[in-house]
Each structure stands twice: as C-alpha cells, then as structure tokens.
C-alpha cells in the first residue's frame, strides 16, 4: 500500500475528487454497457426458448 491511511487513499493528495470521479464515471459507463449486453443476450435466449416450447406444444397437439 502506497498510502499511509485509508483517508489519504481517498484524498489522493488534493486530487481525490478528480481521480474518483474519473473512475466512478468510467465504472458506471462500462458496467452499464456490459449489463445491457448481458440483458439483451438473456432476452434473445428467452425468445428462442419460447419458440422451442411453442413448437413442442404444436407438435403435441397435432399428434393427439
């Protein structure tokens, strides 16, 4: 650990506000972007699975 205390770590000399806001905004943007990508994948997968179920039902109906 380069800093002597946790407070010093947060203050970063006098530049704490710059460093932490830069990292905060970056984390938010990157996190949001990854989250949206994962959500879109989940939705797409659910859509395909719904199609499979519906087909299975149709097949079951026609064989009855």
């Amino acid at each position: 650990m380069y800093f002597e205390s946790f407070d010093a770590f947060l203050q970063m000399g006098k530049h704490g506000i710059y460093v932490w806001s830069a990292y905060g905004i970056s984390a938010l943007l990157i996190g949001l972007n990854i989250g949206l990508a994962l959500r879109a994948r989940t939705l797409a997968r659910a859509e395909v699975i719904r199609l499979i179920r519906r087909e299975a039902l149709n097949v079951a109906d026609s064989t009855d």
Partner: peptide, 9 residues
C-alpha cells in the same frame, strides 16, 4: 502527484 492515477483507466 496522485492525479496521474487516472492513467490506469
């Protein structure tokens, strides 16, 4: 000083 730490992102 410490402001350079922004470089890591």
């Amino acid at each position: 000083g410490d402001s350079y730490r922004i470089i890591f992102i």
